[in-house]
Write a protein that binds this DNA or RNA. Sequence first.
DNA 1: CAGAATTTACAGAAATTCCTGTAAAAACAG
DNA 2: CTGTTTTTACAGGAATTTCTGTAAATTCTG
Lengths: 162, 162
Amino acid sequence: MTEAPPIANTQNLEDETIAFWMEIAVTLGFPRSVGEVYGLIFISELPLNADDIVSKRGMSRSGAGQTLKLLADIGAIRTTLSSHSRKEHYELQTDLGVLVRLFLNSRVLPRVEELARRQTTLAAQASATGNTHLIARFNKVERWQTKTAPLIALVKSLATTA
Amino acid sequence: MTEAPPIANTQNLEDETIAFWMEIAVTLGFPRSVGEVYGLIFISELPLNADDIVSKRGMSRSGAGQTLKLLADIGAIRTTLSSHSRKEHYELQTDLGVLVRLFLNSRVLPRVEELARRQTTLAAQASATGNTHLIARFNKVERWQTKTAPLIALVKSLATTA
DNA sequence: CAGAATTTACAGAAATTCCTGTAAAAACAG
DNA sequence: CTGTTTTTACAGGAATTTCTGTAAATTCTG
């Protein structure tokens, strides 16, 4: 068998960069295609429009549109103002801090806080019933919450001032 | 319409506790049923076996078995040694620290570190090609990595000594 | 305002994930 | 070792998620 040359050419690098962002996306709970489009804009020097995405990656026009909208909503990309074409063009939001902040505030913190609230409510209810077993269990959960408090605090500080 | 009484009875509390754990599970990237089984064991004073899960929640026998195995693998529950029945019985791993540690070490840190590695490799390849645009982009990513380093450090310390 | 270009909404298709049922494997008791 | 109980593997099925194609809505140009 002939070996593929090990030297990375530009095409390979770009493909792997897109694959990298795809993996980031699924790690953060987005569809792969979200990472794919983000990666494409990441490697592109010029702003891209929906049809660029379609032609470069072969996804459907509406899929490209929806994904671009999602990325814009979460602050990962933004529309460019001065394009000479009529189509909406998108470029990277290069201030990644904005991206991290928006993501934490819209996706992770609300969820974490809602879970903490429910935990507190349930523990209180358990106390009210006098069910010693449940009370003990929730106490353990509460103590663990204390241990991870610094982590939450750090995330919160990132969420506001990153 | 008649209102349901607002006072929480034990059944409600148990159901909501299970629902709570189900939500935790999906937040952590597991199927709902994993949280369901965990919640059931959480509220149960005595160890449970697979058939208990089946009868209490109506899931399939094999599903119950697989889910119990998964929970045992991630350290969330463990088999009890001295059961007078022949079936495997499972009880809560009450040291939640163990659970957090195992989860971080098996699921989150490997992924984070692999992504960081890939990022480094890609940045180096970008440098090698001399593509100034890509180099600049990866520089931004790198700086962001620096900002989140304390977070990773904190997670790592939790992962070893929580 | 009319006509063209572009985006968006939505229903259905494709794909993925999760769960079930059966049957084989393993563990155990006598 | 034999028969029974319990667990595990795996193929197929159900449900959820993601993507596509069409058609309606919007935006823009002249």
